[in-house]
Design a protein around this nucleic acid. Structure first.
Length: 510
RNA sequence: GGCCCGUUCGUCUAUCGGUUAGGACAAGCGGUUUUCAUCCGCUAAAGAGGGGUUCGACUCCCCUACGGGCUACCA
């Protein structure tokens, strides 16, 4: 058991785009696998055909790729020896396991119609009893425990719809060790006879999950807390199958909560509160509704990983900015917290800002170049690269390379009205004119030379630098804030700088 | 309603019986930046409540409150 190679899996249902809570689950699985030199498997749990959403599976694959936490095997990442990894394609193999349980007396056929079940629930609710299909109530239902053997046989031969239910022990204390929460105790009296095998011939999550984890040699099940209540059933299933020796260890992760109010973070929250809840933008195939994604919003994948990692886990010291490699090295399940974490957009922005500053200029330049080209502009790679170097200190999102740095490529035609109103006076045109003259005479168009040209113009006109510098910025870029001014002017080049000053002079001097 | 899990600054969290309860984000204040959106410094800010156990509890146990999850032929 302990000498088994670590194998974990991320097993989403393709019912829609992957949500950041799911991304975090995938990340923790990835970190755990890499930390232990094991395998990270992607398994698609599409046993509910009614909830299938086209494109969801591809979305999941693309999201994991964008984030850089690709599985070692599974749909979209190359099949390992346990293919197929899509449960719908594994359909035929589940039946034999359901039969095994049936034969061993751990499961039984149930023929109850939805109406029968509804009636049962109504009846129990009326008498104030927990309405569930369990060791007590099953004796009053239509199943292979109450029906004669012959009748069961004939119903099956007549192709009457049936399900296979787990035969939950009446009163038994089940305990299992959760790697995050410690020992969890539940009495089976609280549990019900869960359907394992549906009338459409598909297994439910519970059966498919346990069978696949067994078959795929999963050693650790790291999943969201919403699965904690059904973990005892899963433990009982491993026992019923006789697989207890290789039963995976469980770790139930705390949930990601809404930033405000109550409840877990849901798909609706993101755009309502102004931040993405999806890694990638998603367009609903039926409604056409578009939900924003981290990628499109200008987040760097490394930043998303980092901020998600710290929502429910910490390395035990004050380290916050961590590379994926560092996270792998430091990750342990016992440092995962037990309680839900509210998503904090401010912190998310801060992470992204930090990452942008530490990202190689060439990487950013590639992004900025797309925008430059999209505007039919042509600038050298070196120019774009240097622009990135200057802009990146001032922005939070990748897309702001363009939205904030547009003036690196397009000369301003409008000038910040507030600054102009406050700073423009009768001396301003004189300073600008002198500055143009001085710059023209410069032997070299470097930042310090331009600064000298500027200072000389100030001195000549008896103007204080602190009263004019921001105005000069507005003349050159149109906006009130930005990267170091003289370095930008140096990058613009002599002709462009003079042209911009000239334009500002004629526009504002009227 | 029942069951399960949880509860430290506004938020994410550190602390694994003895600390001035630490860090980060956000906030407020101040400084630097001849300009700014950067940067730096400072301040304010927490153990849900009540019982135990103990020489000593944020830390262990119990109760209450609150929060969350589950309670489908969905995952």
């Amino acid at each position: 058991m302990t000498d088994r190679r670590v194998r974990v899996r991320f097993a989403p249902s393709p019912t829609g785009p992957l949500h950041i809570g799911g991304v975090r689950t995938a990340l923790y699985n990835y970190l755990f696998a890499k930390k232990h030199g094991g395998d990270f498997v992607l398994r698609i749990e599409d046993t509910d055909q009614t909830r299938f959403v086209p494109g969801a599976e591809q979305y999941i694959i693309e999201a994991l790729k964008w984030l850089g936490i690709s599985p070692d095997e599974g749909i979209g990442f190359g099949d390992g020896k346990h293919a197929p990894y899509r449960q719908s394609e594994r359909k035929p193999m589940y039946r034999q396991y359901a039969m095994q349980l049936l034969e061993a007396g751990h499961a039984y056929y149930a023929f109850d119609t939805p109406e029968d079940l509804e009636a049962m629930r109504e009846r129990l609710k009326a008498s104030n009893v927990d309405a569930k299909y369990d060791p007590i109530t099953r004796s009053a239902m239509k199943n292979s425990l109450t029906l004669s053997e012959d009748e069961v046989k004939s119903r099956i031969e007549n192709e009457e719809p049936y399900v296979i239910r787990f035969k939950m022990p009446r009163k038994e204390e089940v305990k299992f060790h959760d790697e995050i929460r410690g020992w969890v105790h539940v009495n089976t009296a609280q549990l019900d006879d869960k359907v394992l095998y549906k009338s459409d011939g598909m297994p439910t999550y519970h059966l498919a999950n346990v069978v696949d984890d067994y078959l795929m040699e999963t050693t650790h099940v790291i999943r969201g807390e919403e699965w904690l209540p059904s973990a005892p059933l899963h433990v009982l299933l491993y026992r019923a199958f006789g697989w207890e020796e290789v039963m995976p260890k469980f770790a139930h992760l705390p949930l990601l909560l809404k930033p405000e109010g109550n409840g877990k973070l849901s798909k609706r929250d993101g755009d309502r509160l102004g931040f993405p809840v999806f890694p990638l933008q998603w367009q609903d195939p039926t409604s056409g509704e578009v939900s924003s994604g981290y990628r499109e919003s200008g987040y760097l994948p490394e930043a998303v990983l980092n901020l998600l990692a710290l929502l429910g886990w910490n390395p035990g010291n004050n380290l916050e900015i961590m590379s994926l490699a560092q996270m792998i090295e430091l990750f342990t399940l016992d440092r995962v917290s037990k309680h839900g974490a509210k998503f904090d957009q401010n912190k998310a922005k801060w992470f992204n800002q930090q990452y942008i500053r530490h990202t190689d200029n060439a990487v950013l330049a590639a992004e900025l170049k797309k925008d430059v080209e999209a505007h039919q502009l042509s600038f050298s790679d070196d120019y774009i690269l240097r622009a990135c170097e200057l802009i990146k200190e001032k922005i939070t999102f990748v897309k702001e390379l363009w939205t904030f740095g547009e003036y690196f490529f397009i000369a301003p035609t409008q000038f910040d009205a507030g600054v102009v109103a406050k700073r423009w006076n009768e001396k301003s045109p004189l300073v600008l004119a002198d500055m143009i003259t001085n710059i023209q005479a410069l032997p070299e168009h470097g930042a310090i030379h331009i600064e000298e040209a500027y200072n000389a113009a100030l001195v000549k006109n008896e103007v204080l630098g602190k009263d004019f510098l921001q105005l000069l910025r507005v003349c050159l870029t149109g906006v009130a804030g930005g990267p170091p001014l003289f370095e930008m002017a140096a990058l613009f080049g002599k002709d462009e700088t003079i042209a911009r000053l000239q334009r500002a002079l004629t526009t504002l001097n009227k």
